[in-house]
């Protein structure tokens, strides 16, 4: 029985396709007979499907060009808002550092301020744990220990236009990871978990990581960004040695989707 590598275009097999021997013709007849017995999609499956499609329509439906333009504007607003949060956080941090400031552990905003002070890239870093609950903070403060690390999701909102610019994505994610490449990381959170956590964008990004087939153990993190104006996820993964690979995939990826771009980026010296 030859069930192994069937990628080759074997001339003999192709010839046998057109004139199959009797046993194989019989198999064909059996397959056809089996197909003839097919029934319609069961009512419960059809109902689930209808509900999912209705939810997808409410969730935004088709990403028309107009909507994508609106999404782009929204992302710009989001980036501006993130910058405001960083600056506002800086003020809070400054207040905390003063003799009159509140003590104790800082909020997410104050953590962002810390990152701003340390020259970290703007943006919100979100780490999804196995339960899909995110924690916000900065890459500089969030050291990504094995106890808390899930899939690192960074929302830079950057619009990457070419392969060279993907080095920036790698930098954003590596800065967010705050951990050496050799650090132990937990497996990818499931998209369903992220969805349950209430963030469909993160769920989509995690789904796209799975679509790309990038090994969970090699993923350093994901940057929610844009590729030439289209919402995209940049998956940063270890590529061996001192190199990481940045793989861009459309955020509305479909199963079997090809990457939009890929670039191997040397890890910047610490």
């Amino acid at each position: 029985m030859r069930t192994g590598d069937d990628e080759r275009d074997d001339g003999d097999d192709a010839a046998a396709f057109d004139a199959p021997p009797a046993p194989e013709q019989h198999v064909r007849d059996l397959l056809r007979a089996a197909a003839a017995q097919d029934t319609a999609m069961p009512a419960d499956v059809a109902a689930r499907l209808e509900a999912a499609l209705a939810a997808a329509r409410v969730d935004g439906g088709v990403a028309s060009l107009g909507q994508r333009r609106r999404a782009r504007r929204f992302n710009r607003v989001l980036a501006a808002a993130a910058a405001v949060v960083v600056l506002g956080g800086g003020a809070v941090a400054a207040q905390q550092a003063s003799p009159f400031g509140a003590g104790g552990r800082g909020s997410a905003s104050s953590a962002a301020a810390g990152a701003a002070d340390e020259g970290a890239l703007p943006g919100v870093v979100e780490r999804k744990d196995a339960a899909g609950t995110g924690t916000e903070g900065t890459g500089a403060e969030d050291t990504g220990s094995a106890e808390t690390a899930g899939t690192l999701v960074v929302r830079s909102g950057n619009d990457y236009a070419d392969q060279a610019s993907l080095a920036d994505a790698a930098t954003v994610v590596l800065a967010g990871s705050g951990a050496p490449l050799t650090a132990t990381r937990t497996p990818l959170s499931a998209p369903e978990d992220a969805q349950a956590g209430g963030d469909p964008l993160v769920a989509q990004a995690l789904g796209c990581v799975q679509v790309l087939g990038v090994g969970a153990a090699s993923v350093v993190g994901v940057d929610l960004a844009q590729w030439r104006g289209t919402a995209a996820a940049v998956v940063v993964s270890r590529a061996g040695g001192d190199t990481v690979r940045a793989t861009v995939v459309a955020l509305d990826c479909v199963p079997g989707a090809d990457p939009l771009a890929t670039a191997d980026v040397p890890v910047p010296a610490a």
């Binding site: 030859r2 001339g11 097999d13 396709f17 199959p20 064909r28 079997g256």
Partner: peptide, 24 residues
């Protein structure tokens, strides 16, 4: 399937042969 026509024929032919063998 995103493959060449010859590959589909080859897969079908091998699949039929394998099925005949399993069932036989």
């Amino acid at each position: 399937l995103g493959v060449a026509v010859g590959t589909v024929k080859s897969r079908c032919s091998r699949g039929r042969s394998a099925l005949a063998e399993i069932l036989g």
